[in-house]
């Protein structure tokens, strides 16, 4: 386990110093700070718009960071030949892969935490937030984004065991879109009785295979006043569990591929 943690720690240290990630993060943070300026957009629902914008920025930024961060995790190691110095040590390949993944997730956590903190500070300053439960409710959204992005990172790590970074970028991005943006579309298609059975089955297949990213999106309750959330703890527990199991699936599959991979 020490080996995994060592690799993770090194990966995190490296990730948070990568210039391209810093630039993306900086853009995200700047957008978060200027977001209250968008208040003019709507009179009564300014809070709604501000929250929507802010959480959207956090989601988009962390998704881009998650993908950019992870698609280069292994290719960079190979390019610099550091992977050979590591794999020629008593390090199992799974340890390397898991270490890399955990390191990336830790870096992701740091960056999402930074954005969340910025959001909460900005909201407090412009008076759109009261200390206490409102703050906690709002912070739950980026927390779930983080869980979502951890799953996305696992997708990218899995792909990175057999495709090149550029292909991986689009592949992982595509899977993310399928699992979040178009998830409901596929769900609708799979339930549309008017469509040919083949199309329905195909849509159902996509809907059930692709990780259900949209399930981690809880911003709706933070943006809009809504009904009381039922079984909230069960939901959070369940979605964490889902993410954990799916990450395991992707990592095991990744290990099986990477184990045979000639680097």
């Amino acid at each position: 386990m020490n080996v995994v943690l060592s690799i993770a720690k090194t990966t995190t240290g490296e990730a948070i110093r990568r210039r391209v990630l810093m630039v993306i993060l900086l853009i995200g943070l700047v957008l978060l700070v200027v977001a209250p300026g968008m208040e003019a957009l709507s009179a009564r629902q300014s809070t709604t718009v501000l929250r929507s914008l802010t959480l959207g920025v956090i989601q988009l930024t962390s998704a881009v960071i998650a993908i950019v961060l992870t698609v280069y995790l292994i290719p960079n190691e190979i390019e610099r030949r550091t992977i050979y110095t590591i794999l020629s040590k008593p390090v199992q390949r799974w340890q390397f892969l898991v270490g890399k993944y955990l390191g990336a997730v830790a870096a992701l956590a740091l960056m999402v935490a930074m954005m969340t903190a910025t959001m909460l500070i900005v909201f407090s300053v412009v008076g759109k937030l009261t200390l206490g439960s409102d703050m906690v409710d709002l912070a739950k959204v980026p927390l779930m984004f983080f869980v979502q992005m951890s799953l996305l990172a696992a997708v990218a790590v899995f792909f990175s065991t057999f495709v090149s970074p550029i292909v991986n970028f689009f592949l992982s991005g595509g899977v993310y879109l399928l699992g979040s943006v178009f998830s409901s579309l596929f769900e609708v298609l799979s339930n549309n009785k008017e469509l040919p059975a083949m199309v329905q089955a195909g849509a159902r297949l996509v809907h059930s295979i692709v990780p259900n990213f949209q399930m981690f999106n809880v911003q709706n309750s933070a943006i809009n006043a809504g009904p009381v959330i039922q079984n909230e703890q069960l939901y959070y527990l369940g979605s964490f569990g889902y993410a954990l199991v799916y990450v395991m699936i992707l990592l095991i599959a990744g290990i099986l591929v990477f184990d045979r991979r000639e680097v």
């Binding site: 020490n2 080996v3 060592s6 690799i7 090194t10 240290g13 490296e14 110093r17 610099r80 030949r81 550091t82 050979y84 110095t85 590591i86 020629s88 040590k89 008593p90 390090v91």
Partner: peptide
């Protein structure tokens, strides 16, 4: 193994690199 022209993690110091490989 000392690979040909490796690039180590540049953000680390020489000592940190040593500690990292030692930890492995």
């Amino acid at each position: 193994y000392l690979p040909e022209k490796p690039y180590y993690y540049e953000h680390m110091t020489g000592l940190e690199i040593m500690r990292f490989y030692a930890s492995l």
